[in-house]
């Protein structure tokens, strides 16, 4: 393979981080669907199961290609570069993690406050796994959404100078 055709490992690492975040969004969909299955009627289960199956296939496909590349395609001696935390996309990932934690904490705090204010809590009849799924969906959904918002179209157009032109 010529040097021109060799992919920049840092670019590959960025695209893998996006793929990982796509899988995280699908995990949020699965968690939200599981939570919904506790409050929706039994007739909706067929749709919910379909959504979960498609999401699970998407997660496996996204992660399998990522693991395959890391195991078999990562050029020798480039592992450190592949894992390097120095760059725009890893920075966006860190900021998304912070936002995800903050949003989840605030909404859980608000929900706990509402629970104390209401004379009869609307939550008590639901199984505890419902809350776990709901919080997971919120946390993972915020993580993926904020990441893709920060990563939106920045850097997709090369301004002014292009050596290939």
């Amino acid at each position: 393979m010529s040097a021109e055709n060799t992919p920049n490992v840092a670019d590959v690492a960025d695209s893998h981080r996006r793929r990982l975040m796509f899988a995280v969004l699908l995990m949020a969909v699965i968690s939200a669907t599981r939570a919904a299955s506790d409050v929706l009627e039994a007739g909706a289960m067929i749709y919910l199961k379909g959504i979960m199956a498609v999401s699970a296939i998407g997660i496996v496909a996204a992660l399998a290609t990522l693991v395959y590349w890391k195991l078999f395609k990562l050029p020798a001696g480039q592992r450190e570069l592949y894992l390097s935390p120095d760059g725009f996309v890893t920075d966006a990932l860190e900021r998304a993690k912070n936002a995800s934690w903050l949003v989840t904490f605030l909404l859980v705090s608000v929900a706990a406050g509402l629970d104390r204010m209401l004379s009869r809590s609307p939550w008590v009849d639901l199984p505890s796994v419902f809350y776990f799924n709901l919080i997971s969906a919120l946390m993972l959904g915020t993580l993926g959404s904020v990441f893709f918002f920060l990563d939106r179209d920045a850097g997709n157009v090369e301004p002014e100078w292009d050596a290939s032109a």
Partner: peptide
């Protein structure tokens, strides 16, 4: 130096997007 963003990115070991976002002041 007649370098594209991709050339510079590969030379110093970062992604092209990192170079672009530094250039435009976003990162």
């Amino acid at each position: 130096h007649r370098l594209s963003q991709a050339d510079l990115a590969a030379a110093i070991g970062v992604s092209r997007k990192t170079i672009n976002t530094i250039e435009v002041g976003r990162f």
